[in-house]
Simulated scan of single mutants.
Amino acid sequence: MRFMILVKADRNSEAGVMPSEQLLADMGRFNEELVNAGVMQAGEGLHPSSKGARVHFSGKDRKVIDGPFAETKELIAGFWIWKCASLQEAIDWVKRCPNPMLGESDIEIRQIFEPEDFGEAFTPELREQEERLRMQVSRQEAENP
């Protein structure tokens, strides 16, 4: 199973306060444990929402909303993609994570859909297209690191 681990933003991360050298070192050690255990597939920090945008959909209309966004508790400061045997394994790893923020913080764990989760609606043709696109992305990443 794959999981997206979402590090929730706080007012410091939204203000652009960068992590300390100590926190970066602690996270580096934690990430190394994840990689050595075969758990971590990807992980990145995100710039504050003031540097982002949202696109609101209403039928055929699209409306762009520039950041920053008001509800800090709903924003994401970073993420990982992990491969774990279960939700409990992902929880156990998160509990070992250094606190990613200066004060209290939250990390959310969400399972990623796999092709078999979609049932019959995910036809063989759609599965073939999905696999072709994944392979294309992998090739592009290898060619343009």
Results as ranks from 00 to 15, higher is better:
residue 1 M to L: 08
residue 1 M to W: 07
residue 2 R to V: 00
residue 3 F to S: 00
residue 3 F to E: 02
residue 4 M to V: 07
residue 4 M to A: 07
residue 5 I to Q: 02
residue 7 V to Q: 00
residue 7 V to P: 01
residue 7 V to C: 02
residue 8 K to S: 01
residue 9 A to I: 01
residue 10 D to L: 01
residue 13 S to E: 01
residue 15 A to P: 02
residue 15 A to C: 02
residue 18 M to R: 10
residue 18 M to H: 10
residue 20 S to F: 01
residue 21 E to H: 04
residue 22 Q to L: 08
residue 22 Q to P: 01
residue 23 L to V: 05
residue 24 L to M: 14
residue 26 D to K: 06
residue 28 G to K: 07
residue 28 G to C: 08
residue 29 R to D: 15
residue 30 F to A: 00
residue 30 F to E: 00
residue 30 F to V: 01
residue 31 N to M: 09
residue 32 E to L: 14
residue 33 E to P: 05
residue 35 V to C: 03
residue 37 A to R: 08
residue 39 V to W: 07
residue 42 A to I: 01
residue 42 A to N: 09
residue 43 G to W: 01
residue 43 G to M: 03
residue 44 E to I: 04
residue 44 E to Q: 12
residue 44 E to A: 13
residue 45 G to P: 10
residue 45 G to H: 07
residue 45 G to A: 15
residue 45 G to E: 10
residue 45 G to T: 13
residue 47 H to C: 04
residue 47 H to M: 09
residue 48 P to A: 03
residue 48 P to E: 00
residue 49 S to W: 01
residue 50 S to T: 04
residue 50 S to I: 02
residue 50 S to G: 13
residue 55 V to E: 10
residue 55 V to S: 07
residue 56 H to D: 08
residue 56 H to E: 11
residue 58 S to G: 11
residue 59 G to P: 11
residue 60 K to I: 03
residue 60 K to N: 12
residue 61 D to P: 02
residue 62 R to Y: 03
residue 63 K to D: 00
residue 64 V to A: 10
residue 64 V to M: 14
residue 65 I to L: 12
residue 65 I to P: 03
residue 67 G to L: 00
residue 67 G to M: 01
residue 68 P to I: 01
residue 68 P to F: 01
residue 68 P to H: 00
residue 73 K to M: 08
residue 76 I to C: 12
residue 77 A to Y: 04
residue 79 F to I: 06
residue 79 F to M: 11
residue 80 W to I: 04
residue 80 W to S: 06
residue 81 I to M: 15
residue 82 W to Y: 09
residue 82 W to N: 04
residue 82 W to Q: 03
residue 83 K to V: 07
residue 83 K to M: 05
residue 83 K to Q: 13
residue 85 A to D: 14
residue 85 A to S: 14
residue 86 S to A: 10
residue 87 L to Y: 14
residue 88 Q to K: 13
residue 89 E to R: 08
residue 89 E to Y: 12
residue 90 A to T: 09
residue 91 I to Y: 07
residue 91 I to K: 13
residue 93 W to E: 10
residue 97 C to V: 07
residue 97 C to F: 13
residue 98 P to L: 12
residue 98 P to Y: 09
residue 99 N to M: 14
residue 99 N to T: 15
residue 99 N to I: 15
residue 100 P to G: 11
residue 100 P to M: 04
residue 101 M to S: 14
residue 101 M to R: 14
residue 104 E to Q: 14
residue 106 D to G: 10
residue 106 D to H: 13
residue 107 I to S: 07
residue 109 I to P: 10
residue 109 I to Q: 11
residue 114 E to A: 15
residue 115 P to H: 12
residue 115 P to V: 13
residue 117 D to K: 08
residue 118 F to V: 04
residue 118 F to I: 05
residue 118 F to S: 10
residue 119 G to A: 08
residue 121 A to R: 11
residue 122 F to V: 08
residue 123 T to L: 06
residue 126 L to G: 04
residue 127 R to E: 15
residue 127 R to P: 02
residue 128 E to D: 13
residue 129 Q to Y: 05
residue 131 E to V: 13
residue 131 E to A: 14
residue 131 E to M: 12
residue 131 E to G: 05
residue 132 R to F: 04
residue 132 R to L: 06
residue 135 M to I: 11
residue 135 M to N: 15
residue 136 Q to Y: 02
residue 139 R to A: 09
residue 139 R to Y: 09
residue 139 R to W: 09
residue 139 R to L: 11
residue 141 E to N: 11
residue 142 A to L: 12
residue 142 A to E: 15
residue 144 N to T: 08
residue 144 N to Y: 13
residue 145 P to R: 11
